[in-house]
């Protein structure tokens, strides 16, 4: 069976497991949702009527079945806070977060390469390693705060909040940089990028440190292998040796680390979006937590979980491309 088919089936199974967990979590809420809807002082009969209306008196498998049915139709419930369907809310805010995450991942990867190269050139520099560890240990609310304080408040070089300065602009994709390019408006593109820098780099830093360390370690091991000596023995330039022979064989572990970082990205996203008032799904989640908006919390968790799983598959494919010995197997 071809790889993609097997992985998709695996994905569906895990998604089902996730939905089941979310469903159970919904049922664990201590307050009785029927009573909450009916009102604190409503008589029992009204509460029971509401319970029947909501279908809460059905047995567990039926409730789960109906829950799944609703999910498939795209109904993630209604947000208590915004009074909008959760799915609509998510679709509104997701592009902003995706743009920020893409920027962060790209920046993180590039920075990781630079850090790994630096460590390769100065293998015994204890201060370099210390600096990198210090940078990677900093909690993201601290780095976000400090960078906002320094580059926005003190120096005024970069904007400290929002996605665009004052103007309203909405493009087709929701990615401001892309939309700006499509509309041919250079000022929008520059503005969007300027707003992306601070939150993006704040997010990118822990990613860069983690992947950079993994890459440096893997390169260190790979460059000691006999085939590197063979490559040098052919008289190849050092740059080519590192790139074609070294990096490709060292790619597997850093790619796995990248996958891990994507999972941790979500938590950091919440903080960064709150600090920089970035109108994305992270900010939505923070507000949902603050107002105990359970449908929003659970709905967004499902969507983000699915995205995370999809990225996991992409990482696996990338790993097998780097190392053809790894055959893709479920």
């Amino acid at each position: 069976m071809p790889y993609i088919v097997r992985r998709v089936i695996g994905l569906v199974i895990v998604l089902l497991a996730m939905t089941f967990i979310v469903f159970c979590l919904e049922s664990l809420v201590p307050t009785d949702p029927a009573r909450a809807m009916a009102g604190v002082s409503a008589p029992i009969s009204t509460v029971e009527m509401v319970r029947q209306q909501l279908g809460l008196d059905q047995p567990l498998p039926t409730r789960y079945g109906r829950f799944l049915l609703r999910l498939i139709q795209g109904d993630l419930g209604m947000s208590v806070r915004t009074r909008q369907p959760v799915l609509n809310d998510i679709m509104r805010y997701l592009p902003a977060s995706l743009e920020l995450c893409a920027f962060a991942l790209l920046g993180g990867a590039l920075l990781a390469l630079c850090l790994a190269m630096l460590q390769g050139w100065f293998p015994n520099a204890a201060s370099l390693r210390f600096a990198i560890t210090a940078a990677g240990s900093a909690p993201i609310f601290l780095t976000g705060l400090l960078s906002a304080y320094l580059f926005w408040f003190v120096l005024g070089w970069l904007p400290g909040s929002g996605r665009l300065t004052g103007r309203s602009f909405a493009g087709p994709t929701g990615f401001n940089v892309l939309d700006g390019l499509l509309a041919g408006r250079a000022d929008i593109v520059v503005d969007a990028i300027a707003h992306l820098v601070l939150p993006g780099l704040t997010l990118a830093l822990p990613i860069a440190v983690a992947i950079g360390r993994s890459l440096a370690g893997a390169l260190h091991d790979v460059m000691r292998q006999p085939y590197i000596r063979t490559a040098r023995g052919k008289g190849l330039a050092e740059g080519r040796v590192v790139l074609c022979h070294g990096l490709r064989n060292a790619a597997s572990a850093p790619l796995a680390m990248a996958g891990l970082q994507v999972g941790l990205l979500f938590g950091n996203l919440l903080i960064v979006e709150q600090t920089f008032a970035w109108p994305g799904i992270g900010l939505y989640m923070v507000q949902a937590f603050a107002s105990s908006d359970l449908p929003a919390i659970l709905g967004a968790s499902l969507v983000l979980g699915a995205i995370y799983l999809a990225i996991g598959i992409v990482i696996e494919i990338a790993q097998s491309l780097a190392d053809p010995r790894i055959t893709l197997r479920a």
Partner: peptide, 24 residues
Amino acid sequence: LRMLRRKVVRVVPQDPMAGLNPTM
């Protein structure tokens, strides 16, 4: 030295498996 290794001196290593790039 690189020119030397390219044209003049070549090595056949001990372990043929480890001496070849496994992914190329």
